[in-house]
Design a protein around this nucleic acid. Structure first.
Length: 948
RNA sequence: GGGUGUAUAGCUCAGCGGGAGAGCACUACCUUGACAUGGUAGGGGUCACAGGUUCAAUCCCUGUUACACCCA
């Protein structure tokens, strides 16, 4: 016999093990022959991360879809894996080194450091996937992938090389968002602009050869050390005469021009702006238009470099600000200060570090070209977003997409497959200062050397793996220079010019070094739907499961990830990677705040699983997953669904105790009893509702439909009504009810399985111990197909019975009849149908309404409570118990209610417009309702008159 | 500044052009042979505000307010 309560902790691990042993998660498990496929790729979590509530929601939804489609007989693949998460992972390991007071990554060197990261990955990489297993995720773990696996890395290199060859990836010196803490470039998306209380400082610059001054306003006074111009609007009458003159930059003493440029807004501040092209995105463009050379005043850690006066060198940017202001104030340059709300760019992860626009060489993707087909896909409906409103978000971003900076000055990630060498003096770009070194982009070093060989002719080539900092590299470079009249002009090159004759070349080796940088993590994530299936090889999995069906994700990574998968998928496979993008809500805390580690308001899903079980946790998330709305997670909901799990358990326990065993060859169509015909029909309706809702990604409706049916119908009414049958004498009725109950429970287990996989599988096994042997585990059994089993006649009868019992109970409570007391029931004015129904359901009625007799009468005793149902009046003679005033009050209240209902309907039916314009069935419905109300009103008035 | 979303019971949230719902909380009663993680009955809402469309608006439209988020 089943235990009294279900203990998830004792069951979940065992069940999960069973599924795995049975190979139930494997791609194609349980599929019907020739079935259509259904595939989902997991949004790969950070390999060293741990499960948060968003993951729990995300994966619960995927698992619901996967289990549902698997049971529907499709050939299902849920592709799992993890992401190397470049910045996050590298930061964790660096922090570890610091905490343990071990040498930092630069002291360790790249190779040693990467070893450490791999060690850390090996150590903690399984954590999050194990946590997903605790939740019940039925992914095909045998196909687990990692973005830095050899196969996926090959895909990354292939994509990089191909895009480079097509001119869609390029290297350029541009202003990028620079993280001075991590000393790397980051993408626009990784910057969060936060409104801050700042100041606007007004600086008065002296004009050369004049007593005039020009006042500029700035929120970042320290950058004035890098000013190269002052701009005014060309049409600004105040300043027209100054354009072409020069300003002597205070502190620095540099002579800089006053230029006319429309960027200067006459309405804003003084109308004149300082131009610092190396440290402001707008200024950079102004600088380019006017051919001004940017002056970079910062180091990679945002300290002042050697381009500023000596007193400022080595200062942090914020220290420098104070010092600059002090000096400007002392010299009278600082005129006044305003308070101003300003947008400060912060690192979007930590929100601690101020991001600096910084001029560096980086790799970029021409996203604007890749975006065009990806936009068309959504516009033309080949990929749909659910909810649809996210399509607008997608359009807005994609239409204004900027070049994607993909290089990161990190070590953990896919190293960029580009090798650099010196330019030959025969190279057309030999004298182009901006061209940088000669670049060879290739799948492998061997291939890069082959390309280099073609370029350098017969000269020997040597690759230096430590990049420009390798010990022998500078020497080799110098040696090459001595044999080649060369000019190596990139800033990082930093090599001396040498003018030796070209003839001696044959003896020296050409030094090559590989790009030290790695790719943005999202570059490899963008390939995930096809790289995990073996691309660029044309594997059978790729042919079968790609494109995938649904992508389930949060809207916060629609740009980071979804858009980029669309672009890469279309570019490299010619097809959309998925036809539907389901965007689930953000899980917030009870105050509606976004959960984050730094805020410390995180709800740990594993704690929920431990305390309430995986099934309750999953069911809660599903039940709250309404489309287009964030969810505030309340623990009380989890508790409620834990109770639901217990309820289901006990229902099964009750059936077990009452011999409800599945019968070989049972056909629900043969049922005689209305009770059984009704529950089968209700099950069919519930199954249809759940199926429709999941198919439509309305997970909350699916969960609620199942919940209402199981608790509100099956447990509250079917089981209660079946009790008298089980204890009764009618063996045939008992047998039919037992078989039907077992059948209905089977359907319930199936319907609930996608939401609550553990308890349903456990009960499937328990109920499989009697009756015909189970052929397979529930996870791979067939989804209910019960269309056509609905039974309106039985439905009407049971609706009537339920109303009668509820009515009697209500009267009893209101009249304060003790719960244990049994009362007589008299029936007045019953027609034939009521008679038949009463006859058929006598024992159930007697038991559930706690009656001791049911009799027909025409004489209603005084001191009775009366209940109207259909044409009949049901009378409870309660002499001595009843409070007549209370009963009269009750009837009057009901009469008033009916009267107001009738009045409302009469108003409508009396309205010619309504009769003319409303739909026929609406009018008919109003008439019917009026009839019914009138009938009830009449009976109620009769009932009232009997009391006076 | 531009955009999107939300506003329904004390709380967390569904729903919907024609009769206001769930869970939790609350009140009363009930150790009824599955379940007190339960049962029965109940109280509780001008469906944010103001206009409009409609025979009919909590629902559609417009505006306002508040909150949340996205983009600049």
């Amino acid at each position: 016999m089943l235990e009294k309560t279900y203990e998830p902790a004792n069951v979940e691990a065992r069940i999960y093990e069973q599924w795995q042993e049975a190979g139930a998660f494997k791609a194609g498990a349980g599929a019907k022959p020739g079935a259509e496929t259904f595939s989902i790729v997991i949004p790969p979590p950070n390999v060293t991360g741990s499960l948060h509530i968003g993951h729990a929601l995300n994966n619960t939804i995927q698992d619901i879809l996967i289990r549902f489609e698997r049971m529907r007989g499709k050939d299902v693949l849920w592709q799992p894996g993890t992401d190397h998460a470049g910045i996050a992972t590298q930061m964790i390991v660096e922090r570890q080194l610091m905490e343990r007071q071990q040498p930092g990554r630069r002291e360790m060197g790249r190779e040693k450091f990467l070893e450490r990261v791999w060690e850390w990955k090996a150590e903690s990489g399984g954590t999050i996937l194990n946590q997903l297993k605790r939740l019940g995720a039925s992914a095909d773990w045998s196909r687990e992938r990692f973005t830095m696996d050899e196969g996926l890395s090959e895909a990354v290199r292939k994509v990089f090389v191909t895009l480079y060859e097509k001119g869609l990836i390029y290297r350029a010196k541009r202003l990028v968002n620079w993280h001075p803490g991590l000393e790397t470039a980051i993408s626009d998306l990784e910057v969060e602009n936060i409104e801050t209380n700042g100041k606007m400082w007004h600086l008065r610059y002296p004009i050369e050869g004049s007593t005039e001054t020009i006042t500029v306003a700035t929120t970042r006074p320290e950058t004035m050390l890098g000013d190269v111009a002052v701009a005014v609007h060309p049409d600004d009458e105040r300043y027209k005469h100054l354009v072409g003159k020069h300003v002597i930059l205070p502190i620095v003493g540099r002579r800089i021009p006053i230029i006319g440029d429309e960027y200067a807004d006459p309405e804003l501040g003084s109308g004149a702006v300082k131009i610092t092209p190396a440290h402001d995105f707008n200024d950079f463009e102004v600088g380019q238009r006017h051919n001004l050379k940017p002056i970079n005043i910062f180091t990679t850690t945002a300290k002042l470099n050697n381009s500023v006066p000596e007193a400022y060198r080595g200062l942090d940017r914020f220290e420098a600000r104070d010092k600059v202001l002090a000096e400007l104030e002392a010299s009278g340059v600082l005129v006044w200060v305003d308070d101003k709300k300003i947008m400060v760019p912060y690192d979007e992860k930590s929100k601690q570090v101020v991001i600096e626009p910084f001029l560096t060489d980086q790799w970029f993707v021409k996203a604007e070209i890749l975006a065009a087909p990806a936009l068309a896909s959504v516009r033309e409906g080949r990929t749909k977003f659910v909810p649809k409103q996210y399509e607008n978000t997608y359009y807005a971003w994609m239409e204004n997409i900027k070049p994607w900076c993909i290089s990161r000055q990190l070590w953990w990630g896919h190293q960029i497959p580009a090798w650099y060498g010196p330019r030959l003096n025969t190279d057309p770009d030999f004298n182009n200062r901006d061209a940088g070194p000669k670049c060879f982009v290739a799948d492998s070093e061997v291939e890069a050397i082959a390309q280099a060989q073609a370029y350098y002719g017969a000269r020997k080539i040597e690759v230096y793996s430590g990049g420009v900092n390798a010990p022998d590299y500078a020497k080799a470079m110098l040696s090459f220079e001595t044999t080649q009249r060369d000019r190596l002009n990139a800033d990082t090159w930093n090599m001396r010019k040498h003018k030796d004759p070209f003839a001696e070349l044959s003896d020296s080796k050409v030094p090559l070094h590989r790009d030290e940088d790695v790719l943005d993590t999202w570059f490899s994530s963008a390939l995930w739907p096809f790289s995990t299936m073996g691309w660029p090889s044309q594997t059978p999995e790729l042919a079968k499961y790609y494109p995938t069906d649904v992508l389930v994700t949060g809207f916060d990574i629609i740009f980071f990830w979804v858009a980029r998968m669309m672009m890469m998928g279309l570019e490299f496979t010619g097809t959309e990677p998925f036809h539907t993008v389901y965007m689930h809500a953000l899980v917030r805390d009870e105050k509606g705040q976004k959960m984050s580690k730094t805020k410390g308001n995180v709800i740990d899903p594993l704690k929920l699983v431990n305390e309430y079980g995986a099934d309750a946790t999953r069911f809660t998330l599903a039940a709250m997953a309404a489309q287009g709305r964030d969810m505030r997670l309340a623990i009380s909901r989890v508790e409620g669904y834990r109770n639901f799990v217990t309820k289901l358990w006990n229902a099964a326990r009750f059936l077990e105790m009452n011999g409800c065993v599945r019968i070989e060859g049972y056909d629900p169509r043969d049922n005689k009893l209305a009770l059984n015909r009704w529950i089968v029909g209700s099950t069919a309706r519930a199954a249809a509702a759940v199926t429709a809702a999941i198919s439509d990604y309305r997970f909350n409706e699916a969960a609620n439909a199942a919940y209402d049916f199981v608790w509100g119908t099956f447990c509250d009414w079917y089981i209660e009504l079946a009790k008298p049958v089980f204890t009764g004498e009618d063996e045939a009725a008992k047998a039919e009810t037992q078989a039907t109950a077992a059948f209905a429970l089977d359907q319930i287990l199936k319907l609930l399985h996608p939401f609550m996989p553990f308890i349903t599988e456990e009960l499937w096994a328990e109920t499989g111990k009697t009756g015909p042997a189970r052929e397979k585990l529930l996870i791979i059994s067939e989804w209910p197909e019960l269309a056509g089993l609905e039974d309106p006649e039985a439905q009407a009868e049971l609706d009537w019975l339920v109303a009668l019992i509820s009515g009697i109970r209500s009267v009893r409570q209101e009249m304060n009849v003790p719960a244990g007391a049994k009362v007589k029931l008299l029936v007045v004015g019953a027609g034939a149908e009521t008679g038949t129904r009463l006859e058929a359901n006598l024992s159930a009625l007697t038991r559930l309404a706690r009656l001791d007799s049911v009799d027909y009468t025409s004489d209603v005793p005084r001191d009775s409570a009366q209940l109207i149902l259909g044409e009949a009046t049901f009378v409870l003679p309660l002499a001595g118990v009843i409070d007549l005033d209370a009963e009269r009050g009750r009837l009057k209240r009901d009469i008033a209610k009916e009267q107001s209902e009738i009045d409302k309907i009469d108003k409508k039916l009396g309205n010619e417009q309504f009769l003319a314009k409303a739909a026929e069935e609406v009018i008919e419905e109003q008439r019917t309702r009026r009839e019914e109300s009138l009938e009830r009103l009449k009976r109620l008035q009769e009932a009232l008159s009997r009391l006076s």
